[in-house]
């Protein structure tokens, strides 16, 4: 993976996960049916959770931090507006 996008990727993943575990989405799976004998909602939540964890591992494990992201002795990043 290309370096330097770790921050963006993690933020995107956070938004994805927040949406995936948001009640309106969960409601889509809260139906009376089973896949492989498992209730759909139960299966969905754990599967989505596992995917999120795998993605965190993938992003933090494979992207290199840039000097700016590491922040030590780096040249000052553009001032953040407060």
């Amino acid at each position: 993976m290309r370096a330097g996008l770790r921050g963006e990727r993690l933020v995107a993943l956070f938004i994805l996960a927040a949406v995936a575990f948001h009640p309106p989405i969960l409601n889509l799976f809260a139906v009376d049916s089973a896949v492989f004998g498992l209730p759909l909602l139960y299966l969905y939540v754990f599967a989505a959770w596992a995917v999120v964890i795998a993605l965190i591992a993938l992003i933090t494990g494979t992207t290199e931090e840039t000097a700016a992201e590491r922040g030590v002795d780096a040249k000052p990043a553009p001032e953040r507006e407060v």
């Binding site: 809260a30 139906v31 009376d32 089973a34 492989f36 498992l38 209730p39 139960y42």
Partner: peptide
């Protein structure tokens, strides 16, 4: 898992826990 959930889904009192009536 399958057998346990199948039994639970047949029990009227337990089924709502699995589908989580919104």
């Amino acid at each position: 898992f399958g057998a346990l959930f199948a039994r639970a889904m047949e029990t009227p009192k337990l089924a709502p826990l699995l589908t989580a009536s919104p």
